[in-house]
């Protein structure tokens, strides 16, 4: 049935969406607080996947794989912040783009040296390898678990940011970093915390995606670009925006890929549709982003409204 197909594609879209959110949350906070453009965020995702895959192979425990990915990526993030990136926070975006572009090449090659150029296989954990019946169609329980975990993390982040003192500082920092500094808060400490947190979330996204994508060098870049689209559409520095935009992008991209070619066939000749359909599907979210920016240059859910132009 097509409705079942549509529903399962919708779930796929949500699943992609929550993964994107895990990446976007860190990226958008880091941008909001430090005004730092971190292209190497995708590398942290990749590292998470590799750490997880390695731990899973050795221990056969998915839980340990999760821990390894989150802690490992978090530590790499911490080290990056402390030893490599701090001086870049004050620089302009151009230097940041360039430096983190260099880091991408570095990490991709590092992974290639350690784990080899071909992809590493990671199994779906035993407990989640079956399928579940929803509304009369079957859906892999692992993907459902990703959606659940992603939403749980989003909820946790929400509580952290809305209900705790640290969260209050993060919110304040994202709106006005100078103000937080003026309040006498050690902004460096806050930076490190946010950066490591973002890295850990990227690592989590990586390990969760591990069993359903191919774990290989360079796997971070396509995801990074999608994530960038998410934070731009959502409004830079806005967690809420990142969450909503991640779901929108995930669903639009997935549904586009699934149905655009068929849809095109009803409008155009088969040959035209077959040629243009997939292309249009891949372009869909970029088109969407261009339209959003053309109409609302600040994104859909901006973190703060600026007074002057």
């Amino acid at each position: 049935m097509t409705t079942q197909l549509a529903l399962s594609q919708l779930l796929n879209g949500l699943q992609l969406g929550v993964l994107l959110f895990l990446l976007a949350a860190g990226l958008t906070l880091v941008f909001g607080i430090m005004s730092f453009v971190n292209l190497a965020h995708g590398s942290l995702y990749m590292l998470g996947a590799y750490f997880g895959a390695a731990a899973f192979t050795h221990t056969e425990s998915f839980l340990l794989a999760l821990v390894a990915a989150v802690v490992g990526a978090g530590i790499v993030g911490l080290l990056l912040d402390r030893f490599a990136l701090t001086t870049l926070y004050q620089r302009d975006h151009l230097d940041q783009v360039l430096a983190t572009f260099g880091l991408i090449l570095f990490f991709n090659e590092l992974i290639r040296i350690i784990w080899g150029p071909s992809s590493v296989f990671m199994q779906v954990p035993q407990a989640l390898s079956s399928t579940v019946d929803i509304f009369g169609f079957t859906y892999p329980s692992y993907r459902l678990a990703i959606i659940g975990a992603g939403i749980a993390v989003a909820l946790g982040l929400y509580l952290l940011i809305q209900k705790t003192r640290v969260g209050m500082l993060i919110r304040a920092g994202a709106t006005n970093a100078n103000m937080v500094a003026a309040l006498g808060i050690n902004i460096k400490w806050l930076n490190t915390l946010v950066f490591a947190l973002g890295a850990a979330l990227a690592g989590l996204a990586g390990v969760m995606a591990g069993p359903i994508v191919s774990v290989q060098p360079g796997m971070g870049e396509p995801v990074l670009i999608l994530t960038l689209v998410v934070i731009i559409i959502g409004g830079l520095g806005s967690i809420r925006g990142a969450f909503l935009a991640a779901l929108i992008v995930g669903v639009v991209d997935t549904l586009g890929r699934a149905f655009m070619p068929t849809l095109m066939r009803t409008l155009f000749e088969r040959s035209t549709a077959d040629a243009a359909g997939p292309a249009l599907a891949s372009m869909l979210i970029y088109l969407f982003m261009a339209v959003v920016l053309a109409v609302k240059p600040q994104g859909l859910f901006p973190a703060s409204t600026s007074v002057t132009r």
């Binding site: 941008f31 453009v37 975006h93 783009v97 670009i225 960038l228 689209v229 731009i232 830079l236 077959d274 040629a275 243009a276 997939p278 292309a279 249009l280 891949s282 372009m283 970029y286 088109l287 982003m289 261009a290 920016l293 053309a294 240059p297 994104g299």
Partner: peptide, 27 residues
Amino acid sequence: RTTGIAFIMITLAFAQMLFFGAVSLKD
């Protein structure tokens, strides 16, 4: 219409569009 980081990203997005457009040129 955008500046700063948004400009960086939107130019990247347009380039991706063209990239995928070229990929789709099966002929």
